[in-house]
């Protein structure tokens, strides 16, 4: 019996070793593109274009980031465009996040905790709206925003976020349903209105879930390209995703090392945010995909 356990342990040791090798190799495959992006962003133009590639560029040129940051700054009266794009992205992200958190919490509360006629039908329709592809809405939305006088402003990018969305409603509803009904009942006996229950009982408990909604909607707004492409025309209104395209512009755009430096600057905030919020992030994704 003792002998058998030992061989089992040895076997385990070998298989754990193999497992680690496999995982490490896979990690390299998954990380190389990003590392290569950073390496190129620190190369001189000549090194970046050399073949075979240099994995650790020599010399390391930090100034590329400065150059990329100021790229085309003469077009905006000397202000670095990346700064303007970043400000615009920030504006849109703040408003989208705020709108998504507030509106989805309210609506999800209704679907999760309140009974009203037609609620369940409405909820299935809500889920079904996830099937509607954006391209089918593209043209009519454009015409509608034109009538509203919204083209060329940030409004088409953030105002819809204040009217909830199927995915986040679904996410929050899952969470709200796990909060014991007794808490609401107790609050009701204390004389709380529905709004009071929502604001004083449910919301404080739902903070982790709200953080997830905030993160997801931040990512979506930060990454969005098609909507800004349609609604923003003037360079001083571009978001980062849209402005980054200028590096790849018509006549070939900027040199590759600047493209990589600019790309790194757009990717970095997301990755930094991820490292700070990793736990909520991973948990949030996990709940979003598991049917409850």
């Amino acid at each position: 019996m003792a002998k058998r356990t030992r061989t089992l342990q040895q076997q385990n040791l070998v298989s754990v070793g193999i497992l680690h090798i496999v995982l490490a190799l896979l990690s390299i495959v998954f990380l190389i593109p990003l590392l290569w992006m950073i390496a190129t962003s620190l190369s001189t133009e000549k090194v970046a274009g050399s073949f075979p590639p240099q994995f650790i560029p020599e010399p390391i040129v930090w100034k590329n980031y400065y150059t990329a940051f100021n790229y085309q700054s003469e077009q905006l009266g000397g202000v670095p465009p990346m700064l303007i794009y970043a400000r615009n992205s920030l504006i849109v992200c703040i408003l989208v996040v705020a709108g998504a958190v507030i509106s989805n919490a309210i609506v999800a509360y209704s679907f999760a905790r309140l009974k009203w006629p037609g609620r369940d039908v409405a909820f299935s329709i809500t889920l079904a709206t996830m099937m509607i592809p954006f391209p089918v809405l593209m043209v009519p939305l454009y015409a509608m925003y034109k009538d509203f006088g919204w083209i060329g402003t940030f409004r088409p990018l953030w105002i819809p976020a204040w009217f909830a969305g199927a995915f986040n409603i679904f996410l929050l509803r899952q969470f709200f349903r796990t909060i014991p009904l007794e808490l609401s009942e107790a609050a009701k006996i204390d004389g709380c209105s529905e709004w009071g229950i929502f604001a004083k009982v449910i919301l404080p408990l739902a903070k982790p879930a709200l953080a997830v909604v905030a993160l997801f909607s931040f990512m979506a707004a930060w990454n969005d390209f098609l909507a800004p492409l349609l609604y923003l025309q003037s360079q001083e209104t571009f978001t980062l995703a849209l402005g980054l395209q200028n590096f790849k512009g018509q006549a070939g755009g900027s040199p590759i090392h600047l493209q990589m430096a600019a790309s790194t600057m757009v990717v970095a905030p997301v990755i930094i945010l991820f490292f700070f919020t990793q736990r909520q992030f991973i948990q949030g994704i996990a709940t979003s995909g598991l049917k409850g």
């Binding site: 509106s103 309210i106 609506v107 209704s110 309140l114 009203w116 409405a122 709206t129 209105s193």
Partner: peptide, 16 residues
């Protein structure tokens, strides 16, 4: 409750 429910769902009903 159903009044409150509809009221809470209103943003989405409009958005939808």
């Amino acid at each position: 409750q159903s009044k409150a429910g509809l009221l809470f769902a209103l943003p989405w009903l409009i958005g939808f």
